[in-house]
């Protein structure tokens, strides 16, 4: 088992004829992901690397029965691409695109809710169920099948941690990069619930960052709802202040956002916080009694 994606997942790539879209479509196929189609308006009927291209997501879905879509289209058009996938009935949408305007994402939210679409990102590296399915730009070779769930707001830091887990024989059920944007799709709580419900996942690693209060919300959720052990790491403990959004930023999260507050929230929820990434495997092992 795993969460969100597995070997049955059928993926289409929106923006498949772009440089990044084409490159990563090839990488995902090579990993074993079922890349069943691509979308590029005006290029319908063509093929790229054996993958059929369609003009619209609706056509692609009807022809291929795809249930997931990954978005590589440029930032000004990314929100529209998410909406197109959502209205075509795609269940899981992963937006890799970086630099999407916040207002665009805010306008997307009520529609994906109404359509029941699960969104990951934007500005995220994607997700992977090792050995079964890779969606996004993650380096497949560092992952190992196993029983640890992982979620992160960051990209390369995730790889760093995954590499440490794999080197220590701790394989993963599913690893999800939720992205670093302020207005994004699935958050920690949504994924924590999925890992809690996944029989194959025995423990969860949460990699957070300073800013916002997603980690505090996650800590609250863990305290109230999780039975499985969670280990955390917070990047940016020494980052300079000044990224704060005026008075209103402090108000909306009741003054939270600093590493100290996040570490304290995790401590209150019984979640050990690693001082540096290399401590994570040891913390997991002790939680699992290994």
């Amino acid at each position: 088992m795993s969460i969100l994606i597995n070997k049955e997942t059928k993926l289409i790539v929106q923006g498949i004829t772009g440089r990044d879209g084409a490159f990563h479509a090839g990488k995902m196929k090579a990993y074993g992901t079922h890349v069943v189609g691509g979308v590029s308006p005006g290029k319908g009927g063509q093929h790229i690397d054996g993958v059929p291209i369609f003009n619209t997501v609706k056509e692609a879905r009807e022809a291929t029965d795809a249930n997931a879509s990954v978005i590589f289209v440029p930032a000004p058009f990314a929100a529209d691409a998410i909406l197109e996938a959502s209205f075509a009935g795609i269940e899981l949408v992963i937006a890799i695109t970086e630099g999407v305007p916040q207002q665009d994402m805010i306008r997307v939210m009520p529609f994906i809710k109404q359509n029941g679409t699960k969104l990951i990102g934007p500005n995220c590296p994607g997700l992977i169920t090792p050995g079964e399915c890779l969606i996004g730009i993650l380096p497949g070779n560092i992952f190992l099948q196993g029983n640890i769930g992982l979620m992160s707001r960051s990209g390369t830091l995730t790889y760093e941690v995954v590499n440490l887990l794999t080197e220590n024989g701790l394989g993963q059920t599913t690893c999800v990069g939720i992205g670093g944007d302020p207005v994004a799709g699935l958050y920690y709580q949504d994924l924590l619930q999925m890992f809690e419900d996944d029989p194959k996942t025995d423990a969860v690693v949460l990699i957070g960052e300073i800013g916002g209060d997603a980690e505090e919300q996650a800590a609250k959720f863990i305290k109230e709802k999780m039975t499985k052990p969670v280990v955390a790491f917070i990047a940016g403990q020494t980052a300079p202040p000044g990224k704060r959004m005026g008075h209103a930023g402090a108000i909306i999260s009741s003054g939270s956002g600093t590493a100290e507050e996040k570490i304290k929230a995790f401590g209150d929820a019984g979640v050990p916080v690693a001082k540096e990434p290399s401590q994570i495997p040891g913390l997991i092992k002790s939680k699992l009694g290994l």
Binding site: S152, R153, S154, G155, T156, L157, T158, E160, G180, I207, E209, I210, F233, A235, G236, Q237, T238, A239, K275, E276, P277
Partner: peptide
Amino acid sequence: MVNGAGLAMATMDMIKLYGGEP
């Protein structure tokens, strides 16, 4: 000099952890 923002922040933290200043 680091690749990726999260790793860059974690690197700064690490320098501080061992008594240096980024």
